[in-house]
Design a protein around this nucleic acid. Structure first.
Lengths: 256, 256
DNA sequence: GATGTCGGTTCATTATTTGAACCCTTATTT
DNA sequence: AAATAAGGGTTCAAATAATGAACCGACATC
């Protein structure tokens, strides 16, 4: 791995659950030497990608990242556009609704609305979702470029639960159904007891750029609920796509 | 400069005005060799910090940045907290209101609300503000750590207009007035014809972490307007600080 | 069909990164 | 109160990765 990759993988050690980490901890988790880790942190700090707490000397992600993310947002107003619709969908369904954007090889959770239920599906901002074992992933693949689909199906497909589909053919079938239906369904593919529906958000070229999904405990989900949530998530995804692309969205229907 | 710094300075070439750049252009602006530029871009792309447009082959900032920025936001909910109050202030004053966060050695503009006027002060998200020649900068310095103040006054102080204060003593006086008054005033320090007021947003330790400011054309600004905007911006900053710190804000008054 | 531009690649040279060992400070333990 | 452990930070010869001039192919322009 190049130096740049190492620096970035340091940044990727920070999570919502652990937003501040010490030097030794970062070195341990990254597998880099302490001296290397520190040199990278100093470089990152110098550009505002990392900040150091004056008191604890621990490190955390810096304001420079917010700056760049905002510049990106100005070009791709994905969040601004989508968040209000995510909120609407959350109050309509009274379940967890999450919004994801594709990055590198997985979906990145960029916004979440949780319901008031104590028993709910909990998802963190920044959480990464595999493509083959989530409703969002299937919805994404259903409208992804061929290369992305191939890359996903060619890679090793982890079985997170007994229900996870790991045969390429089964996944392709799931994708085809999602395309036909307009939304994907994933029954406990990533975690036991969780059932989700999702729909793809399309960019102007007709390919998916992200997804919106409703995740709920299976215990309180009847078949009728799935249909209802599916139609709602599909409508929300369509509305977001429209707003992003100025209503001139090409509906894309590709063969498998 | 280390490789990491080079990679980051590539990212910093992207702006709201030019969110997509080609390889040759990036090489030219960064001053790096084309091969080097490309190697850095490939490394950045591999981690989602940069994306390449499939059609034009131009590069732009990637979703990985949004992910990390959101993780940071979860710890420091600066934007979420402040944006509603920025909006309120914008409609109350009918002038440009901008929110900044400190990063490295300058203030980073993280949110802006523009009024409907054709003649208005225009500020872009991501724009960097010098400390010594802006209302925001003075407001920040008035409540910054001594080291930050020293570092600022020690560095070279650029005179952007004939009105820019560049003597450390004059800047210190300006800071002291801002501390006393509760808000800073900057009369054409960065650009002719623009007058701004700003107030610092404080973190729990009593030091500034960012600022909120109102910027307006001097032509339609009477002395009474300055006072009115100043009081409004001060109230907004105080409210944001309170919300960020759970109402237990220590009011800090330091001597110069 | 000659010329310029742009994205991308190669490989010998060169400069940066690496990491074991070290120091310093701050708890915690004995 | 001394001993021990653990974390942050530093050093410098050895190892490794970055560099850039030259090059290729594709496309557009003249």
């Amino acid at each position: 791995m190049g130096t740049v990759g190492k620096a970035i993988s340091l940044l990727e050690l920070f999570t919502v659950a652990e937003p501040e980490l010490g030097l030794t901890e970062l070195a341990r988790r990254s597998g880099f030497d302490k001296a290397t880790t520190r040199r990278l942190l100093v470089a990152l700090t110098g550009h505002g990608f990392v900040e150091q707490d004056a008191g604890t000397r621990h490190y955390r992600l810096g304001a420079g990242l917010s700056r760049l993310a905002r510049i990106r947002e100005a070009r791709f107003p994905f969040l601004q556009t989508a968040v209000p619709l995510v909120r609407d969908l959350a109050s309509a369904t009274a379940e967890t609704v999450h919004l994801s954007e594709f990055g590198t090889d997985r979906l990145v959770t960029v916004h979440v609305e949780h319901p008031a239920w104590a028993n709910r599906v909990n998802i963190d901002i920044g959480q990464l979702l595999p493509l083959h074992s989530t409703a969002s992933g299937i919805a994404y693949l259903a409208f992804a470029r061929d290369e992305a689909v191939k890359a996903c199906l060619a890679g090793p497909l982890e079985a997170f639960t007994a229900h996870t589909l790991i045969e390429p053919a089964a996944i392709a079938r799931s994708m085809a159904e999602a395309r036909e239906r307009g939304y994907s369904i994933c029954d406990q593919g990533l975690e036991e007891g969780v059932i989700s529906v999702a729909a793809a958000i399309l960019s102007a070229d007709g390919f998916a750029l992200g997804t919106i999904a409703v995740a709920a405990p299976k215990a309180r989900t009847a078949p009728a609920d799935i249909t209802q949530r599916g139609l709602a998530v599909m409508a929300a995804a369509r509305e977001i796509s429209m707003r992003l692309n100025g209503d001139n969205l090409q509906t894309l229907r590709r063969q498998v």
